[in-house]
Amino acid sequence: MSTSRDVVLGRIRNGLQRTDMEETLAVRRVGHTLASAEPNLVPARGSGDLEERIATFTGMARAVLTDVRRIAAWHELPALVGQYLREHNLPQKLVMAPDEALDRAGWDSQPLLRIRRDTAADADTTGVTLAEAGVAETGTLCLASSDRRPTLLAFFPETSIVVLPAADVVASYEEALERYSARHDAPPRSINFVTGPSRTGDIGQKLELGAHGPRRLLVVLIDEA
């Protein structure tokens, strides 16, 4: 008895009707395509030098209601986060990616902030994580999962704070993935491209934020390398 796999693949081959010669060429073509890193057309919009990319990123991100702030140094981060939480009347409580890159901010400077380092759970109100890159083209964050950067931090809590080193603002989604592949051997379980807070138009076609994912999204750009 043939398996469903054989049946489906057989039907496809039947529909395509390749000759033996065409078959050989097709196999070669597919192998070639899969091995090729030749880029497709990438819109020019995101390109430019770093400052131009940051300007485009910021403009595009704000257009989709992302809050974007820029600071010079890591040590300014805790105060900015504390201030942001106060602005929005949110509890001084964070669930933060257990990534040592975030440690250099020196969170002790904000003694009122209660910080848990793990993935997000139901009771967490604000999640903090790090972006792999920012994409200027559409003001999009690129997040990659790992043991130190759990995915749910940017999805489960109602407020999402994402730290983005300014030097990691790239032109396109393609470049964001290139950065990742230059730093890692294999794709992570999950790569999230995030463009603004969660939104829905499902109630009377009116735009509402915070459908399931975050209602608020703050991106903190840090200049210090």
Partner: peptide, 19 residues
Amino acid sequence: DFSAYTTLLTGPKRPDDRD
């Protein structure tokens, strides 16, 4: 220009992943 969330998923949870 882009939907709010575009996610690429490759395989299940890695041994060290927290979610």
